[in-house]
């Protein structure tokens, strides 16, 4: 899995700003326990919902994407905590992965 580099991220922000488009940058800043996610992984979410990069895929990525879209709509940054432990709604075998851990995602909006 090739993560977005900082150079790529800032190049994208510059590009979006040039086109007068907002952009949300979601970064996994902390993790604890065992998660398939890696700190430093970044997901860029554009106003039209398009995304770039990855925070490790799976259901978490969809959650991060949804949070980023809300942040874009509000035009405000967010710090989100995700718990991957004992999700009561989804049994582990159905999710296709067993991970017990927490992670914190910083979502910033660039205008």
């Amino acid at each position: 899995m090739s993560l977005l580099t900082q150079s790529e991220v800032y190049a994208e922000i510059t590009k979006a700003q040039g086109a007068k488009r907002k952009l949300a940058v979601a970064t996994i800043v902390t993790t604890s326990g065992s998660t398939p996610q890696r700190t430093g992984a970044k997901l860029l979410v554009f106003e039209d919902g398009r995304m770039m990069g990855t925070v490790g895929g799976g259901c978490v990525e969809a959650d991060v994407w949804a949070e980023a879209r809300e942040a874009l709509a509000e035009n405000k940054p967010r710090l989100c905590k995700f718990s991957l432990r004992d999700n009561p709604d989804v049994p582990p075998d159905e999710e296709g992965m067993i991970c017990g851990g927490d992670m914190e995602v910083f979502i910033e909006v660039w205008n």
Binding site: Q6, S7, Y10, A11, I13, T14, Q17, W110
Partner: peptide
Amino acid sequence: ATQISLAL
């Protein structure tokens, strides 16, 4: 962002 990009 441009300044950060250039510095990087």
